[in-house]
Write a protein that binds this DNA or RNA. Structure first.
Lengths: 124, 124
DNA sequence: CCTCTGTTATATAAATGGTATAACAGGGAG
DNA sequence: CTCCCTGTTATACCATTTATATAACAGAGG
């Protein structure tokens, strides 16, 4: 999977890395059990520092998207804690929806966006 | 409206301020034309620095939620740019949904969350 | 004139983000 | 066993961001 970093983004590099990899898992470009590149090789291919990649991997591990094995490196291993995931989704949605509601975006428009994105991710 | 800051949060104070005020607008606790407290008084009531409030107000102005008048201070004035708002909502949703999809949260569960939050905000 | 508003300018301290090296420990492969 | 790969840990350094602290300025209104 191609990982792209926008060096002009407001988001920190390690955050972009996390998001891209989570997106990769959501779109099945990364599959359960698959190995991610080692911190050193990914750092080199992107052109960033090893520790920046390491930070991203550590966060992904903490959030339950990968497991880190000293032998094989980071391996996709999604830990499903449904209740916690729902709570986090809710918190994320609350922020987005407050902004949307202020800007007169209707409930239906949001539902449509959800469907579009889900279709996109599920690879219709 | 009561504004609460969590000083132990990962989010910066000025960001929490922005989100709280946007939430206030979404829930009609702040109405179009209403004046926000002056940067000095809000800073004092919360117990933070004037410049932190000022930063939040400036961002809210830039994002089109308030207008700043040298005489009256910050006044709720939502600027509706539907296309841009939709694009921003989409980007916010993409991040949340990627995480949700990884954690096996179904499309329907998301739609339900959306309805819950919208009901909450619309003050059912 | 006094007081309220936001604005601007400095200065400082702490935390964060990113880079740069280096060394360590465990496991696999020759 | 030795070499090389993995992640881990520890330093150090620098730029940026976050937040605070003062201070002074300019416009508007009573």
């Amino acid at each position: 999977m191609m990982i792209e970093i926008d060096f002009n983004s407001d988001d920190a590099i390690y955050l972009q890395l996390c998001n891209q990899i989570i997106l990769g898992i959501a779109t099945s470009q990364f599959r359960e059990g698959e190995q991610l590149p080692s911190v050193r090789t990914l750092a080199e291919t992107i052109g960033i520092n090893m520790h920046t990649v390491n930070k991203a991997y550590s966060i992904l591990q903490q959030e339950g998207f990968v497991k880190i094995d000293r032998r094989k490196g980071a391996v996709i291993a999604v830990d499903i804690d449904k209740l916690q995931a729902l709570e986090e989704a809710r918190q994320g949605l609350e922020v987005v929806l407050a902004r949307a509601l202020c800007k007169n975006i209707s409930r239906n428009e949001i539902h449509n966006l959800i469907d579009q994105i889900y279709d996109e991710y599920s690879g219709i």
